[in-house]
Design a binder for these strands. Structure first.
Lengths: 129, 129
DNA sequence: ATACATGCAAACACTTTGCAGCACA
DNA sequence: TGTGCTGCAAAGTGTTTGCATGTAT
């Protein structure tokens, strides 16, 4: 199970690292395909999974929509605009003390957490009032 | 746009209120269909949407899987077992002070948040070691 | 040489929608 | 009576998979 350094894998990684706007798999696919590089969407999905498992990019699961990916692998939180559905970074300290406040879950092994804020981004806020 | 009190809507609401294990739309459908009541899955989805918009049940969005629903409408958090994929309640104070710690999002309107913990439930923890 | 990776299409899981008929208010 | 609701099937998303072929090591 040794990973290979293929053109497609390199392109997926470089594209995520270049796009700083939380692209979805489809957006990454279209970005690569626009450069006249032959790549299939299945390959994009496969490489996104491998790269995020290796910790080279971050997978941001989004309920009710396409998951997106982040060049920034440092744990952080996100905000989804309920109007334009774009995803933004939220600058907030990583909540390491959250687990101490949990009661009655002693038998669970809690490994990680995600916080997803919802609201309106500046543009949609101005637009929708 | 006046809501009607149909048999199907009542059944969906009662079923969610009776099942205390965060059922998915499909599980609710199967529960109702098992009682020999004719209902279509589309109707279950439509009523789940209406009931959660009315605040009679709570919609729990789950990335990478089927969303589930909760009879408990008081905001609270959830934990998803990465092995059996079941969803559990997390007993933790609602984090009202979270928004104060956010920096640089002054132009955003933050309306709500979800915290999803991930890990292993007691059974899967014992099973997988 | 031989795993691993790719492209393609089909399958998959979850959810929404168009439509004709039905039923609550 | 009329609008809202239903069942059904089909379509819509987002993602994964089977398979034959291709390629990095």
């Amino acid at each position: 199970m040794k990973n290979r350094n293929t053109l497609q894998r390199r392109l997926v990684l470089e594209t995520v690292q270049r796009m700083h706007n939380h692209p979805t798999a489809d957006e990454i696919y279209r970005e690569i395909a626009a450069e006249n590089t032959l790549i299939s969407k299945a390959t994009v999905y496969r490489n996104l999974k491998i790269l995020s498992q290796q910790g080279e990019i971050q997978h941001i699961p989004i309920p009710d929509g396409a998951d997106c990916f982040d060049f920034n692998t440092i744990p952080h939180y996100h905000l989804e605009c309920r109007h334009c559905l774009r995803v933004f970074d939220v600058s907030m300290p990583y909540q390491t003390k959250l687990y101490d406040q949990i009661e009655g879950c002693e038998d669970f092994l809690i490994e990680s957490h995600d916080i997803l804020f919802r609201g309106l981004c500046p543009e949609c806020r101005a637009e929708t009032g």
